[in-house]
Structure formats: C-alpha cells, structure tokens
Amino acid sequence: MSLAEVLRLPVALRRATLTKAFIPQPILASRAYTPTFQHLQRRHGTTDAAPHTTSSSVNHTEVSHFNALASSWWDPQGSSRLLHLMNPLRHRFIRRCLAYDDRDEAQKLRYLDIGCGGGIFAESAARLSTTRSVTAIDPTPEVIAVAKRHQRTDPSLLEAGRLTYLNTAIEDLPNHDDGRYDIITLFEVIEHIQRPSPFLQSCISHLKPGGWLIGSTIARTPVSWFTTKLVAEDLLRIVPRGTHNWNQYIQPQEMRDWARMQPELSTSDGIDWQVMGVVYVPGVGWRQVKGSEAWGNYFFGVRKRWDAE
C-alpha cells in the first residue's frame, strides 16, 4: 500500500494505521543509511525484557500464547485455518527451490521443521513419497502434545522414523554430521523470534551442504500491519489476538542481506535464493502475487553452499 492509498482510508482507520505503523519503527526510518540486516543484528544484541536462557531463541510470552491456542490447531474452522490453507503453497515453494537441484530423484529427503506447532506442515511433509523422514520441533509443550495426539490418527505417520516430534528449541537439538537435514523449514516462525540472527545461525548448522533453509514470514510494512494486525487480529478476528508482534516482522531484503553475510550460505539470484510473495484473498484462498513479498506475506529459500562445513 502506498502513502496515497493510506490517505484514502477513513480518518479513524488512517490515524490508527499511521500511529501504529510509523511510530514504533526505528528500523524503517534509519534504513536510508544503515545496512538493512542491522535489524537482525541489533535485536541480537539487545537484552529482551522477557526472560530467556542465554542460548535459546525461545520467547516465553510466545510459548504461553501458543499453549493457549493448542486445542484449535486441527479444527477445520478454527484459528489455524489460514495456516492450513497456506500449506499447499509451502510445498509448491519447496518444489520450486528443489527444481534447481540436480538431485537424484530416488534420494529421499530428510526434513527438519522448526516451530512445527500442531504439525500442519510436518504431517504433510511426512506423507510425501519423496520424504525419508521428518523431525519436527517446537518449544511449546502443549502444541507438541497436540501434534503427537493428531499423529496417532493416521497410521501411515506412525511408521518408525517417518515423523518424530521433539519438544525442544533448535539450540538444544543434538547436531551431528550424519543426522543433518536436506531441508529445514521455518514457516511463520521468524516473526515470533526476538533475536533472529543467532537463531538462524543455529538452524543452518543442521543443514547438509547443498541443503535448503526455507521459510515464510511477513514483511514489516504499513500494509502488513494493516492486514495482519488490524484486519486479521482486531477486525475480522480470523487470527487470534496477540499472535503477531509487528515489530518483529522482517523484510525480504533484510533476510537476503543477512544471508549474504553468512559464509556458509549461497545467495545467487534464482538458483540459491528464492522468494515468493503470497496474498490471502478472502473466499478464494492464498494466491501467489508477484512483488507482494515487498509488503506482505512471503516465502524465502536460501541454499547452504555445497562446499560448506
């Protein structure tokens, strides 16, 4: 949404949009002269008010928020409906990333799903014929319990090693070479992390060389504040209140700039770095909209170098 479009809104809405959207964002204001990845770096260096262990990315306010929502993960009309509807796009995006690999088709993939919640993506990845195994982790104990309970309703997911849920933070996940993953997914996770930079670094240490780090999040713009906070949470209430913290949203450019700083990652356009903007159209569903990554929900994929450790 451009400034002109914001100005066309009714006065009350506009005032709300402008105050909320423009005041608490030192990052946007300073973007002109600071490298954009500073957003990620700075939060890394800031001491958060919420208590957390020194090694963990886990935000305890978030954990209790998702504990309270646990029961509705698998309700078709429940608060996770938008995530369920988005799930096919996640697979489409992963396929798009893998399309650039000259991978052996018979080589089945090992997934690590971080912040798996009730298991919407983890279950679906475990069902694919191209999957060898899925390990899914979440720091919230109650959602892991929900995920495990739901896993038992599908005998195909109980096959040994097919789908394993662990109640852990990524920093506490054992890391050894033969247990590394082809694909690590972070769907709707980074916006819930207070210090994304060390978090993302712990993620890539679990990737095989040539493996993909794939995620989705929301760009920090007035439009995304308007759609995800005001409309989705406050007006339509299709997303539970307090789910998102707009200040933690990340721009695709910030993601990419951060990735460029990481020696293990390869970010050449189209081959090792992929981005796809998506928009939820009520009554239609999620649709890919070219360019919308700049102002709304988007997917990103970045590959670990083949010669990385």
Partner: peptide, 14 residues
C-alpha cells in the same frame, strides 16, 4: 491427486 501431491490426509476436509 492434488491432496497426495501436497501431503494432505485425503480423508480430511482440507
């Protein structure tokens, strides 16, 4: 077919 290609439980409402 769509459900299988996207890892859905084919008995679910999704």
């Amino acid at each position: 077919t769509y459900g299988m290609e996207h890892g859905m439980d084919i008995g679910s409402s999704w």
